[in-house]
Amino acid sequence: MSAHQHAEGLMSHEPEKVTMEGRNKILGFWLFLGAETVLFGTLFSAFVALRHNVGDGPKASELFELPTVFAATMILLFSSLMSVFAVQAMHRHQVKAMIGWLVATVVLGLGFLGLEITEFTTYVSEGHKMNTSAFSSSFYTLVGFHGAHVAFGVLWITLLILQILKKGLTVVTAPKIYVSAIYWHFIDVVWVFIFTVVYLMGKVAA
């Protein structure tokens, strides 16, 4: 049955699960996140295998500035919280509140990206480049992949905000919001592991 048949009026508590298309989208996205977990798992494995091989470049303990990274972590965690509020607002059919929370999600995501770009620029100026050592290559690939995911998420959620403004909350748009929220949480969880494995372990296990 097609999604648009329900578009007017028939909104349930969970509009994202009303149509078969919506349910497929959510299940398919969870499966995709399973694949993403393996992807990041492999990047983590490569990083853990190579992180002590710094060559002539700077060591992790010399490089990392924990206060900045901690700030970035908090910003991303709060961004994830904002997207929880957005989905809750969606379940109450409060479209304006939902858009507000989504805007907050995007703004915090941009803040995180800003901090990460500053961080990378500083590292490069300190002689920690992609081709410096095996440590630097695996560091930029792992953290950079995460950063690219954040950037994609920011663009995606922005596009969804514009769509909601144009089309309103329907059984077609609701699954998109829901799926983007689980994507955003996933990115957040990956960052928690990066913060632990890359930064905290980098500081202590020098």
Binding site: A46, A49, L50, N53, V54, G55, M130, N131, T132, S133, A134, F135, S136, S137, S138, Y140, T141
Partner: peptide, 18 residues
């Protein structure tokens, strides 16, 4: 690909790769 195109060192043993 990064090793080949961007001079990364994942598998370059000389630069600490494996």
């Amino acid at each position: 690909m990064f090793d080949r195109l961007f001079q990364a060192n994942f598998f370059e043993t000389g630069s600490g790769g494996s």
